[in-house]
Structures are given as structure tokens and as C-alpha cells.
């Protein structure tokens, strides 16, 4: 089945379209922020602090007089970076583990499964606490902590998808053709679980944005003078009762960001998983 037609089918899915548009806007803002922001985000301008919405500062200014919209762009970029790299860590380690477990079965699979269950007992925040205790807080810590928790997620999805494929007859045909299990995993299994993995990646990406916000909010993630959506909320908290907009804007950005990715993932899943789209099969 050509990728083109899958994408075309996905495009006819309303939530996929909304999600694609939203994700596109957020990713675009993040990319632009790397080369340009309306104002520099490292210039303190105390007289203009807590400015409200205006033509020059669309979303007002923060407690140091920095332009909120510029901060938001940079914050989106750093949140996205953390979430993306955490997904990369999870997928790069988890997917091979899951494929190996499905290909070998036996003791290797048992060990991988135990390991999976074990990692599930360490939510990102606990890994982040341990890492921070040892090395001090930073955005990289958050990324690694979230990434570790992503490993068993991807391993589980890859293994689950692969297990059902290994019983299929085309895999037997490949074995008869003398292909090794590693070759079969790469040629026949991975491409057929790719759609499941892509859907999971969008889900983990949105969870990663949420987790990064939480970690930065309690001081275990991104540190000043850098900024991220979670850190903006942390900084806004002290002034929250006086200037609630300081916290409402970055919070709304997180919500819209996460909704966009989730809608994208839902749309992809509905298009890629024929089981959920079937109307009535007889």
C-alpha cells in the first residue's frame, strides 16, 4: 500500500487535519525562533515589566520586561527539543529491544520483559530526581529521564506488533529463503510495525512536552537563563495572583501544543489501524 494513499486518507480525517495544522504552526514557531524572535530574550527591561497586550508586545512582557511572545517561541523550541530527543532515546533503544524480544523469544525475551516492567516503576520524575541529585538540574537531565521512561513504551509496542507478524506465513517463507532473524526483522517486521511506532511516537511526543513542563516547573529541567514552557510557568507563579496572564499564556500554549500532537496521533491511528475503522465485518 503506497504511503501516498495513506497520507491522502489521513487528510480526509478532520482531527488529523486540525492536528497537522496545529503541530505545523508550533514546529514552525520553534524553527523560526532559532534564527529570529521579535525581541531578544536575554535583555532585561525592568521599567516595562508586566506589560499587557500591545501592538509592540503582542502578548505583553514578563517580570523582567522581556517580550512574552518571543519567550514563548523560544520556550516552545526548547520544550519540543527535549520531547523529541526523549522520543529518539526511547525509540532507538526500545524498538531494537522489542524486535529482538519478538525474534528470539526464550530467555532473552524474558529478560527484556522484566527490564520493561522494572523501568515502568521509575516514572520520569524519579529518574530526574536521581539524576539531578548526582549531576545538578539541567534540560539534558529532563530529556534523559523522560527518554528512559520511553524505552519500555517503544519496546512494548514494537514487540506486541512484531509477535503477531512472526506467526505469519510470509515470515516462514523468508526463513525458507535463508534469511536470518535480524534480516527478517529489518525487511519484514520493522516496516510493518512502523505505523504503530509512528502513532506511539506522536503520543510520547505530547507526553514528553507535558513531562518537560512538569520537571522544569519543579526545577528539575530547563534552567534560567534558558527558557521553556514549564520554566515560564515556574517563574510566573510568584506573581500569579497579581498577574495571572503571566501563567495563563504559557499554560494555554502547552495545552494547544499537546492537543495538536494528540489529534495528529489519533488521526494517524484511525487511518493506519483498519481494526478501528471497520464498520461492520462479516
Amino acid at each position: 500500500m503506497a504511503e501516498q494513499s495513506t497520507f491522502a486518507r489521513a487528510l480526509s480525517h478532520p482531527s488529523f487535519r486540525v492536528g497537522l495544522l496545529g503541530s505545523f504552526i508550533f514546529i514552525l514557531l520553534a524553527l523560526i525562533s532559532v534564527v529570529w524572535t521579535p525581541y531578544a530574550t536575554d535583555i532585561v527591561d525592568i521599567p516595562n515589566r508586566f506589560g499587557s497586550f500591545s501592538a509592540s508586545n503582542w502578548l505583553g512582557t514578563d517580570y523582567l520586561g522581556r517580550d512574552q511572545f518571543s519567550l514563548l517561541m523560544v520556550g516552545i523550541a526548547s520544550s519540543l527539543k527535549v520531547a523529541l530527543l526523549a522520543v529518539a532515546i526511547g525509540a532507538l533503544v526500545g524498538v531494537p529491544l522489542g524486535l529482538m524480544a519478538a525474534a528470539q523469544r526464550g530467555w532473552l525475551e524474558a529478560i527484556i520483559l522484566r527490564f520493561n516492567d522494572f523501568i515502568f516503576a521509575f516514572p520520569a520524575i524519579i529518574s530526574a530526581i536521581i539524576i539531578t541529585t548526582l549531576f545538578g538540574p539541567s534540560a539534558i537531565n529532563a530529556m534523559v529521564a523522560i527518554g528512559i521512561f520511553n524505552i519500555p513504551v517503544f519496546a512494548r509496542v514494537a514487540r506486541g506488533g512484531a509477535l503477531s507478524l512472526w506467526t505469519l506465513e510470509y515470515v516462514d517463507a523468508a526463513k525458507l529463503s535463508g534469511l536470518t532473524s535480524a534480516q527478517i526483522s529489518l525487511r519484514h517486521i520493522l516496516p510493518n510495525v512502523a505505523s504503530l511506532l509512528i502513532v506511539q511516537a506522536t503520543i510520547q511526543l505530547s507526553l514528553g512536552v507535558l513531562a518537560e513542563a512538569g520537571l522544569s516547573y519543579i526545577g528539575l529541567g530547563t534552567q534560567p537563563p534558558d527558557t521553556s514552557l514549564g520554566l515560564m510557568l515556574k517563574e510566573a507563579q510568584s506573581f500569579f495572583f497579581g498577574f495571572p496572564m503571566q501563567a495563563i499564556i504559557p499554560g494555554l500554549a502547552i495545552v494547544l501544543f499537546v492537543i495538536s500532537f494528540n489529534l495528529l496521533g489519533d488521526g494517524l491511528r484511525d487511518t493506519l489501524d483498519p481494526k478501528l475503522t471497520r464498520v461492520s465485518t462479516l
Binding site: 507535558l210 516547573y217 514549564g230 501563567a247 495545552v255
Partner: peptide
């Protein structure tokens, strides 16, 4: 969908 996307601390 909105509930899932809201950070609990916010």
C-alpha cells in the same frame, strides 16, 4: 482531549 492536554500543576 482537552483534559489530557492540561498540565495538572497549571
Amino acid at each position: 482531549q482537552v483534559g489530557i492536554a492540561i498540565p495538572n500543576f497549571w
